[in-house]
Amino acid sequence: MGIERVESSDAELVRRVRAGDIGAYGALVSRYRDRLGRYAVHMIGDHEDAEEALQDSFVRAYRSLARCYDPARFGAWLYGILVNRCRTTGARAARRHRMFVRDADALNGAAHGDQADRVEWTDAIERALARLAPEYREAFLLKHVEDLEYEAIAELTGAGVSALKMRVKRAREQLQLYLREAEHV
């Protein structure tokens, strides 16, 4: 799959934005927010920081739209801005949301059954992801969650395809290890 050369309307929308139609940019934001938002949340770990990074990326993209030389591939270009923005956010921020989920459960009385399993599984995945080196996490998410081709990831991250394959392989091994550890705690 990969970042598709989406329908010509991306190019058309970019053209309209360049002509001053801010509403057209709203359409682009609406089109990409959920997918990019998912990447930012998983990459950064903290929901609020992720939304801030996402918002910032959309604004940066708008302000530098003149440098989007292939408007039909606006999505891929925007992805690149977000990937960079997530990198600068640095280490995963304090996990306010995850702490909150635990506290809420505590206040509610202990969660039980399927819900408890789900919360535990979500928590374990978050912890495992957080333990990955950022470049491993980035490559893993872009390859397996965002379903991009290695060539597209190379374009976004500036890393070579073979290095990316190695990062994804290491990420898979480490995730498996961390989750096995979690099962035995």
Partner: peptide, 21 residues
């Protein structure tokens, strides 16, 4: 699990547009 949709604040679109406006 990670491919499931993530809830993004629905007000984000408006904040972006407001900022660029």
């Amino acid at each position: 699990h990670l491919r499931r949709p993530v809830a993004i604040d629905p007000g984000l679109d408006a904040r972006v547009l407001r900022e660029i406006a």
